[in-house]
Design a protein around this nucleic acid. Structure first.
Lengths: 237, 237
DNA sequence: TAGTGGTCTAGACCACGTC
DNA sequence: ACGTGGTCTAGACCACTAC
């Protein structure tokens, strides 16, 4: 069940995406939106705030909310979105090849935020293939404390769908570190790297809603296929 | 003048940073905060929402807001923060070397979001030096339509301070694209690159509060010094 | 001056966690 | 049952923009 402000948000984004409100237009004023959707102003304002934060509109005091030029859907760096979801929203027609699932300990050396040692985990290694080219190697460590086992089908389809839908866990937030490094030989093979190119590595530490540490992830991207985008707002400290 | 919810937000962040509320603790409940700060619940909730979004706490329904482990201050990828501000908040002790200021047209080929051609701009090229090592080359194009001239002192100190404080403009949002590419020879020289290493390039298109396009930026980072962090929350589409 | 967004309030009802 | 956060309301006052 969606909240009222989410329903309003979605309706407005749809109207922007479908050109009912066009780039440069003002969307209806907050008071008009109150009448249109039958909501109070604070509720409408939550929806409009989300439009702002996601780069759909720019709100200007005394004037209104202007629709921005949105050409937004390339690979996002920030955010916490599963590969499966990206694939769906970007229509990438990508395939996933599962290299292996096994039991290991989390390699604490790789994850500087890993404070505890000898964390038992299920290790999943996958390659993302787009147009027959390997683009990304994903290495996931799901902590045994939280997820006891991972079926192959979940790794092939979507880990997050399994974790959230089947297990009923709520993935909530992550800390990420992005670097550029020389890959090990296994990754060189998997990504079919010929020269000595480095790869972009996004390492993250993912937590559940109740702050439980649940997953470490390493995504290794071929640099020639790496193109991330971001929409940022200025918040002065 | 700060808003009430901003004052409350700052006070709470200070208490977390200084350990008055420690990692794993619950901060006072929203009702208690209402009494503590003499505000209504929606006002307190705005402050707490900001704490969540910036990774200070995790709010759990029926339970409270738990202080997270914060080791947050490395170079952020997302966000829109000037180098000068990063320098100050990270205590990087960096220096800026201004290579040149001149008049040019914006090289539209580099910025795929640059729709119009032949935009007149002031071009500023700078190198950021930390511990005597060149780390980043910043290339800024400030549109002549908005900023007629840039004094050398502004380039040496902080462009954003000049633009926001002296000119009274409000920098508001940006679209960014992050890639890894081979640099041109000038950048190789400036960054003292010996081999054939690529660089990380963050290109952005920056707008003012009133949606005016105002600046194009290209930041070229040495990959061995590149380490970005991010705090991300999951928002399911 | 009228309309816009920005902030804040006091109160209501609900869903969830704890005990 | 009680306290927690999550949502929504109706109304107020202010600051800014446009005319």
């Amino acid at each position: 069940m969606l909240n009222k402000h989410e329903i309003i948000y979605r309706d407005l984004t749809q109207k922007i995406v479908h050109g009912i409100y066009q780039k440069g237009d003002l969307i209806p004023s907050e008071n008009e939106l109150c009448e249109l959707y039958g909501g109070s102003r604070e509720t409408i304002r939550k929806a409009v705030k989300d439009l702002n934060e996601n780069g759909f509109v720019q709100t200007i005091r005394g004037k209104g909310s202007i629709v921005l030029d949105l050409e937004r859907f390339v690979f996002p760096v920030s955010g916490l979105t599963s590969y499966k979801e990206l694939d769906a929203s970007l229509h990438m027609h990508s395939a996933t090849r599962v290299i292996g699932i096994s039991d290991t300990l989390v390699p604490a050396a790789k994850f500087e935020f890993a404070t505890e040692l000898d964390l038992a985990a299920t290790y999943i290694e996958r390659v993302r293939v787009v147009h027959d080219e390997p683009i990304v190697v994903d290495r996931d460590y799901l902590l045994k404390d939280v997820v006891t086992a991972v079926p192959l089908a979940a790794a092939q389809n979507s880990l997050y769908e399994y974790v959230e839908h089947d297990l009923g866990l709520e993935v909530s937030y992550a800390r990420k570190i992005i670097t550029v490094e020389q890959p090990d030989t296994e990754v060189q093979d998997l990504l079919e790297l010929t020269g000595n190119e480095p790869v972009v590595i996004v390492r993250s530490e993912v937590h559940l809603n109740d702050t439980t540490l649940f997953q470490f992830t390493e995504s290794l991207h071929r640099i020639d296929k790496f193109k991330f985008t971001d929409f940022a707002r200025r918040h002065v400290q």
